[in-house]
Write a protein that binds this DNA or RNA. Structure first.
Lengths: 145, 145
DNA sequence: ATCTTTTTGAGATGGCTTATCAATTTCAAT
DNA sequence: ATTGAAATTGATAAGCCATCTCAAAAAGAT
């Protein structure tokens, strides 16, 4: 049982690894720790960020590992523009996104009323929600002009 | 003033062209007519579809034209998997998705109240929404047991 | 410590989209 | 109808993001 700031996610990862005959590596630990500090990030951005302290960490490893986090339910991939954003699910429970299709600006928001209505819809259909994804695409005030 | 089945969109396109010093071409008319017959399509799929009757229509032209339709507000680009889907805005039947993470079952639903709240959130942040995506992930009644 | 299995890093490869550019087409002004 | 400037097209090259390949390294069970 891991302890520390990101103990919960670290254990989720370890459990996932155990179930799938995968191994706990220095890189996976490293990338998870870095990932959890962000709300969302691209593989490329994380590559450059980690290169400062670990110059030999490969880009392919970042991609592989972020996709692994998606499988484990820690991250969620989202296509924006030409790139893939990996969202931190831990932050996501109460944060949805307003995304400007002009400049790519992302505004986070939370709205309990919407969440309540989502629960109602789910219940009405016999579902139990674990996570959700709500993205509103449009133009911010600057790009509209 | 164009007449015919897709007169409305044809005029929207012509108006957009006029405003931006762009020209009305055989290809643009052809692609618009084909596009409006679909709910959503990829550039590649449209390329193959049109190749049957117009073998010399270039793929680049399809991409350019579909992006033009997005600018004109006739189409909406949406990234799905590794490809871009171009949605026909005229096909309004917008639905959101309940997705079972156990069996993959997908239930479509529509909820005006949620959409209204989305508008409010957007307005409060200075955004104008063009489209949105709402997916609820969880377990359906069967998979919960 | 040994051995099997998984992972890694670096670069090659692949798939989707956009850029390039000469030839062609559009369309407003003769 | 003809002309001529400006925009568009088609074919292909180029770009970019993400995945694949594979030999070397690391993990973890025995």
């Amino acid at each position: 049982m891991a302890t520390g700031k990101f103990a919960k996610e670290m254990n989720v990862l370890k459990e996932h690894l155990g179930k799938h005959q995968l191994k706990f590596t220095r890189q996976r630990e490293l990338i998870l720790t870095a990932f959890l500090r962000q709300e969302h990030i691209t593989a490329e951005a994380m590559y450059h960020q980690l290169a400062k302290t670990d110059p030999h960490l490969g880009l392919a490893t970042i991609y592989r590992t972020l996709n692994l986090f998606c499988d484990a339910g820690i991250a969620q991939a989202r296509h924006f523009g030409s790139q893939t954003q990996y969202d931190n699910v831990a932050h996501k429970g109460h944060h949805d996104h307003l995304i400007c299709t002009g400049c790519g600006k992302i505004v986070e928001f939370e709205n309990c009323e919407i969440e309540k209505l989502q629960e109602e819809v789910a219940t009405r259909n016999g579902f139990t929600i674990h996570t959700h994804r709500l993205e509103l695409y449009g133009l911010c005030s600057r790009c509209r002009h």
